[in-house]
Amino acid sequence: MELLIIRHGESEADLLGVHEGRADFPLTELGEKQAKRMAAYIEQHYPPNIILSSPLIRANRTAKILEESIGCELIIEQDLMEFNNGVLAGLSREEAAIKYPLPKDGRPAHIPIQDGESDLEFRFRTDNIFHKVFFDYQEYERVAIVSHGGTISNLLKAFLKQPMNNEFIFATGDTGIHLLEIKGNHRIIRFLNKQEHLHKEEDKD
């Protein structure tokens, strides 16, 4: 079983400099182009048998563009949503720093942000959806997952069986692609954060 994990394209929040998380911003014009380039690349090289997506607009739109290109089924999975950042969603970083400053040594992993979730709850949610994908969709040869940066980082940690408290973060650029494989007792990383579909197109523009 292969997992093709994809981040959404550029969203309007990226241009506004706000905390995104559960704030539901759409893709920008560039984000739409990025998603189309990603979809064309995946159609040619790594076509999935099924697509799973976060319901948030930026990810769902990216997934729909992929669905239109591939022609396979698209299923919404609620647990693929980004970190629930509660009161910070949609706030500018400057306003958030004034209204809801972080504690001196950071927020403890078990304490949720106001109206949101804790780091522990976030990690448990992503572990849960990782195992659900593995068991519920194991009849598919290749499953595409369209989600968000923080969620993808935690999915990679779940794949690698990393502990909750560690210093590693897996970055994913706009429409970055990760390809993982589960083969018997082996977990294989084929590649991480591939974005050549963007760079090749930029060279042609």
Rank of each mutant, 00 (worst) to 15 (best):
I152K: 01
T151G: 08
F135H: 15
G176P: 04
I129T: 12
Q138N: 09
F159L: 08
I189M: 10
H148K: 10
T175S: 09
Q162K: 12
Y140E: 08
T172Y: 02
G184E: 08
M164N: 11
I145N: 00
N193L: 03
Q138P: 00
I182G: 02
S147E: 02
S147D: 01
N128V: 07
R125W: 08
D174A: 09
H131K: 12
I182Y: 00
L180A: 07
I169L: 12
L180N: 03
F134E: 14
V143A: 05
A158V: 07
A171I: 07
V143D: 01
L198C: 02
G176H: 04
K161I: 06
D136A: 15
D127I: 07
R125A: 07
H199Y: 13
M164T: 10
I129K: 05
I152G: 03
K157F: 06
N193R: 04
V133N: 02
S153T: 08
H131C: 07
E139N: 11
K161H: 12
R187Y: 13
K157L: 10
F124E: 14
I189R: 05
E141S: 13
F168H: 12
N128F: 10
E167P: 05
Y137P: 01
I177L: 09
V146G: 02
I145H: 01
G149N: 04
N165H: 10
F130K: 06
T172A: 08
A171F: 11
N128M: 13
G149T: 05
K157M: 13
H131I: 08
V143W: 02
F159M: 07
N154S: 12
D174G: 05
A158E: 05
I177A: 02
A144S: 08
N128L: 14
Y137W: 09
K183P: 01
F168K: 14
L198Y: 01
F191K: 06
